[in-house]
Nucleic acid binder design. Sequence first.
RNA 1: GGGUGCUUAGCUCAGUUGGUUAGAGCGCCUCGCUUACACCGAGGAGGUCGCAGGUUCGACCCCUGCAGCACCCACCA
Length: 877
Amino acid sequence: MLDTQFVPKDSENSIYEFWLKHDLFKANPDAKAPTYTIVFPPPNVTGVLHMGHALTCTLEDILIRRKRMQGFNTLWVPGTDHAGIATQMVVERNLMKEEKKSRHDLGREKFLEKVWEWKEKSQETIVSQMRKMGGSFDWSRLAFTLDENISLAVKQCFLQLYNEGLIYRDMAIIQWCPRCHTALSDLEVKCKEIPGKFWHIKYRLKGTPEKFLVVATTRPETLLGDTAVAVHPEDERYAEFHGKEVMVPLIGRAIPVILDSYVDPQFGTGALKITPGHDPNDYVVGKRHGLPIINLMDENAVLNSEAGAFAGLDRVKARAKVLEELQKQNLLIKEEDHTHSVGHCDRCVTVVEPKVSQQWFVKAEELAKDALRAVENKEIRIVPEEWEKTYFEWMRNIRPWCISRQLWWGHRIPVWYCQKCQTAHVGLEAPKYCSKCSHTELKQDEDVLDTWFSSGLWPISTLGWPQDSKDLKAFYPTSVLETGFDILFFWVARMIMLGMKMTGKIPFHTVYLHPMVRDEQGQKMSKTKGNVVDPLEISDRLGTDALRFFLSWNAFHGRDMRVSEEGVENCKFFVNKIWNASRFVLMHFSDVTESKSDLSNEVNQWIWSRLNHIKGEVNRSLEQYRFFEAAQAIYHFIWSEYCDWFIEFIKSKEELESRKASKDSTAVEVLEEAIRLLHPFMPFVTEKLWQEMPIRDRKLVSVCIAKYPETDPSRSYPQTEERVARVIRLIEQIRTTRGVHQLSPAKEISLSVSSLASEGLVKELIPFKELIKKMAKLSSIEFEQKEYPKQTHLSVVMRDLRFFISKAELGDLTQELERKKKELQEKTEALRRADEKLRNERFMNSAPQAVKEGVLKQKTELKREVEALQQYLEDLS
RNA sequence: GGGUGCUUAGCUCAGUUGGUUAGAGCGCCUCGCUUACACCGAGGAGGUCGCAGGUUCGACCCCUGCAGCACCCACCA
């Protein structure tokens, strides 16, 4: 006997332990069954899981559990990401808070020890949370991006790309974060519109100080690093400056006026100061003209000795000081408001500084070619499809990927420099001596790799690459990559590029991009806003099953997904509903242990047939990653069909007794199948209930490995479905009539039903007589083709049936009158339109037969209804 | 500046290649503690599908324009 309620908190842990005990989630590379593989997007070891992770866990677990039940050899690889910059930041912040020390105070080695400690704790937390969500991961394959074998993959990949010339080291202008002290890739820089100023500054002509040109800039502090002023070659205004030199204000350095068509004469003053050291565009122009590069700032964006009197000031102070000086020297002409977009560090939101430095790059342009083609020719399918365009757009305009980071936490770049001749050696191990000069002193590159470089290898590295492992053979390419669209470029694109380059094969067949999690108002969740809904707290209180069902119910193909506690609560009600339906069934049929469904019984036929539809729909929807559709289909079946109608149908004393006596198994079997159908969505409660089912595959230890329901043509009864649908409609109509006439639910009435179409229709209802009586609360019901006088009876019409109720039994009719008038209006209009269509020659010529027949049928029905309604209204008044 | 989406019931969203009277959940209103469930049951109200044109026998769906919203990418100083 089941408890009166399912208490998730008391059951979930032990159910999960039960699964682990029976080792149900472990994949076997030697198994014969076809494989189905997902690698879980490894969460950063920066802290705890949020709602986005919960969504990922839920959706992937649904896919995996269904495939497992379908008999696939499923593998779901769990893991975590070292998340270089993010984790380093968190640990640094902690260190500062707790010990008032910077990482430099500790030194590289000691600091890394601290980070490892942090990682252990964080990973432990994350793993326990993934379990709490019910995730059926193969824990024997738990991976971390800095594991030895994963690091080997990273080095191997670096080496291979280097040998092919696809990785190179270059002096280039990159985005530098003065707070994180590292280079960033373009993707890690987010542009933001910032209201700023446009300052117009005098640059005097060398030797003729009364002549000058005016340069407009948003960054006056960088003028200290100017090495030219550029004007458009055809800009007449500056013709007299061609070939001359002007003086940099404040420091009196002469720089040439150069001609470059990059300059837009319409913009600003048409004269552009060129600062190759601190502006990506200027860098390009500077290179074109062979201009010197002046690096004005140190790693903190504090001005260095190149800045002369301004040395020691940071960017912001330097700007103020420079402006002040310009003002004093009467070189500042005007100041206007100007909004422009400024790059910010994705992690710490500091304004980044373009900086010329030695960095490592990947020729992404080369790798993108195959990665682009794979999606173009649908070898890799992106769902929803509209994201393909975004992917194409980015891939076609991809630029070199800066992969070196001046951090401590991460994969050290596998390059060693000879301390004598500076020759670089790239390899998996430190070389013993220099291959060029045989010197034995070599030093490894200080930098580490971009986190996404190792993430990009995740599908292959977790499966054992570069070894020719069993896992790689069995499970690669993986089946589907499921994640949020926000990391399409960061992660997905790079996995495709690196996976294809390293193995020659695509890393996965399908990319499913789920929506972003928002709060109730559609706002991004963030700690600072305080609108974060914590999945663990919710699952603690309302149950993991409810949370998971809510998440799948809301996984639309849109871009946002709103999470509210109320929504989860409603799903909890659904959990309760199934629980109680099961209680009812077990209360009456717990001794029904043999499959013996009376298939001559129309109610049985009907519920089997309905179940059959739902099975098809759920499977179809899940194949297309339409989680919301699948969830809704099951919800509707269990609640509105199985509970509201089937159970109510069999609930009458006689029916129940007769079913118990004959040990009819329908109620149990349909429920058991519905439970299996629901299991991927709500693993915990379904496991618990499945174990209680008197009929189930007893050879199996868990519903996790029970067969996932598939449609079964032998259980399809379309005609019965139609008949029962008519019965349901009749009951509903009687109830409505009772309702609008304000009859007490306790009051029994009598009525007579006749057909508006063929007489057979009414005969078909006779077997349901008792059932209708019970459910519509009737004292008696007659089925006969008989008219009653309108003085004494009211006739109610519904499509193909009508019934008569004695007026004496009805109460106030005024409300009903209004309602029916409106209905008559609507139906008359619909009839008119149907009629118009049928008269329309062109419609009759071009519409498909089925549509024409439909309209004709509709017209007949409407006509009957309109006539009957008119009569009904007459009767009423 | 370039790109991608979105606009359907009070709210969140479905609506498959244009074809019968546009759906769901929640919320709301009325009634009911009927022995699985009040975390429930029965019934009801509620939409000129953002606006304006066009194509078509027929448009929520296709085309054009407009308005509003969101997101992504971006070196106009």
